[in-house]
Design a protein around this nucleic acid. Structure first.
Lengths: 205, 205
DNA sequence: CACAATTATGAGCAAATGTTCAGATCTTGA
DNA sequence: TCAAGATCTGAACATTTGCTCATAATTGTG
């Protein structure tokens, strides 16, 4: 069970359509297997079996198990940041309340697919320094944007915008994730309303 | 690497002082090893080595690896609930702000020891249904108490106290944990102030 | 069609790890 | 002192798992 740092790049670029299809099958299967069994019990053989391919084929596209997880996490992160960029490039709504609503909705969307899988991904990201740094950067970006927002907005009254920004991001990400992943999840709409209210009253208080 | 449900009880009750001492050594060593290497890489042999005993002795007090983790988590949970009970049985302060301050301080205290270890414990708790249920019960207790508090307090103005209570608990637990476990943790005092402010303005808004 | 490149196969290897057990060592109590 | 029980030891076992590689099948190309 090696855990040291190793290459993450696929060992070969697919050149035929069936190859790319196999790659997709592997990733889809891995998402299911990791989500159901967790990382440790989600063996490569199980993934291959679920994908309907042989174990050898799996290792033709991913150099090791960690690389599969890395690819899944990368895709999730890219999807999230892309969605965020799309929303945040356009003009933001005036009231800070509506800005927070956008934030919370983005978070809810990002967690809607498969909370269990996402939890796995984030838990085992420390296996790769590259992923850790990437996550750190994404987080720091969000905090940075939030802090700038807080400092430039007329409704905002908090003094320590640095701490406030970190608190806001942590709250949104973690609470959304947790409350939606629970066995008896809260209603997404109510969660949105309450969280937006909390954040708004906090920064304008 | 078996993951099915098995006995968690130690196979033998210590009858001599040295036995109890060995038990303690094992748990202390396990806490360090799990915190440093994680659960998977925290092998039983490594734990035994760090504890300065043989692997055979370890298995005289713990039937398997999961049981060690279970004991550590149980102790943490018991410690936390005991501290909470101690504080909450006495008369709570009048202003809701000070009540929240008590909450946040409890959470900070509970996470001060070893955030890395605690993260491990909670991540791998799903290996035991018993632990999962215990965690669920603790959480539900806290939510219940919080909801009762919200409904009985004159300053509180939120309508949906059920959702609000869940949001408050999730926010306190998760954000405190996350912001203190980060590589560059926020100042505990500032975190306390900001979080108390956020929660107070939320429920009194 | 023929030949090369690409992709797929899966039995089996090497390494790691949780766990056992037969015997050694220590402690207790009379 | 000494026997019986408690505790400790650690080499070895059994299992699991990530992964390789020689071979086969398939696809693209002239």
């Amino acid at each position: 069970m090696p855990s040291d740092q190793r290459r993450i790049q696929p060992r070969k670029q697919p050149r035929q359509v069936r190859a790319e299809l196999t790659r997709q099958r592997i990733l889809t299967a891995a998402a299911h297997v990791f989500g159901d069994h967790g990382y440790a019990a989600g063996t490569t053989n199980r993934i291959a079996e679920r994908a309907g391919i042989s174990i050898g084929s799996l290792y033709q596209y991913f150099p090791n198990k960690d690389a599969i997880l890395a690819e899944l996490l990368t895709r999730h992160l890219d999807g999230g940041t892309a969605a965020a960029a799309k929303v945040l490039t356009g003009p933001l709504p005036e009231p800070i309340e509506e800005v927070f609503r956008v934030f919370v909705r983005l978070a809810v969307e990002a967690h809607r697919d498969d909370p269990h899988l996402l939890r796995m991904l984030l838990e085992h990201a420390p296996r790769s320094n590259e992923l850790l740094e990437r996550i750190g950067r994404v987080k720091q970006d969000m905090v940075g944007h939030t802090q700038a927002l807080l400092e430039g907005h007329p409704e905002v009254r908090v003094a320590d915008t640095a701490t406030a920004a970190r608190l806001v991001i942590a709250t949104v990400e973690l609470a959304v994730h947790d409350l939606l992943a629970e066995p008896d999840p809260v209603d997404a709409r109510r969660l949105e309303d309450e969280m937006v209210a909390m954040l708004t009253r906090y920064v304008t208080g």
